[in-house]
Design a protein around this nucleic acid. Structure first.
Lengths: 111, 111
DNA sequence: TGTATGTGTCAGTCGAATCTTACACGTGCC
DNA sequence: GGCACGTGTAAGATTCGACTGACACATACA
């Protein structure tokens, strides 16, 4: 895990609304408008947060057609368990140097 | 751990400069100007980042007098190991409700 | 007295992230 | 057609964080 990936992850989780969005999806998948109502925030705002969470790999979303023909964008949690300590940070920074050295190399990293 | 504490922790770690500051302190304690030179950033900037890390409980700093009489602000890492998963987030949000209910209650929380 | 080292703090700039509001477009139903 | 419900997106205001540069103050030393 590079520091870039680590930072994406941390800054994705490190926000009140996104914390609540994750909690809202803990019970199971939900579509955007539904979740927006439950959390009491505007749909475009939640949309933005969910996009950010998806980029960081915390959730996945996919379009789905309901029985009555509506397009629903369902999001669900991706299981994650990051152990955040000094070693994790040192490893991430070390991974950056590795990547800088093997810019064309294949993807073969532990984790 | 309340969500406020969790967010303080995550947003503290979730920044490039602070990641580097933590890594810089991994070898041992260091005073601000010294670390600023090593990281190649301005002292007021590093100062700000260290204050933020201290507020989140990741580092501690204390003033110390060197042999030649200078006041040096030494910072050192506080060991930490946060397991970041969905349950951690749910627990934090649940802790908020607990706190809201017992605003005058004593401090007695697991963790 | 002047220089070099440190701390602590503040005003102000700047850019990114957040958030609101509004729009276009699609379906099913009365 | 008009209404209710969804998605996707974009313009604009605003808030927030990061960062620079400068200041006051202390010590030691030549």
């Amino acid at each position: 895990m590079t520091s870039e990936e680590l930072l994406a992850f941390l800054s994705a989780v490190g926000h009140t609304q996104r914390l609540r969005a994750i909690a809202g999806l803990a019970d199971g998948r939900m579509y955007v408008s539904e979740l927006a109502r439950q959390l009491g925030m505007s749909r475009p705002l939640l949309y933005m947060h969910l996009e950010r969470l998806e980029k960081a790999g915390l959730v996945v979303g996919h379009l789905e057609l309901s029985d009555d023909g509506k397009a629903l964008k369902y999001f669900e949690l991706v299981p994650f368990d990051l152990h955040l300590n000094v070693q994790t940070i040192l490893d991430a920074l070390r991974a950056d140097e590795q990547q800088a050295g093997t810019a064309d190399g294949p993807a073969d990293e532990e984790g």
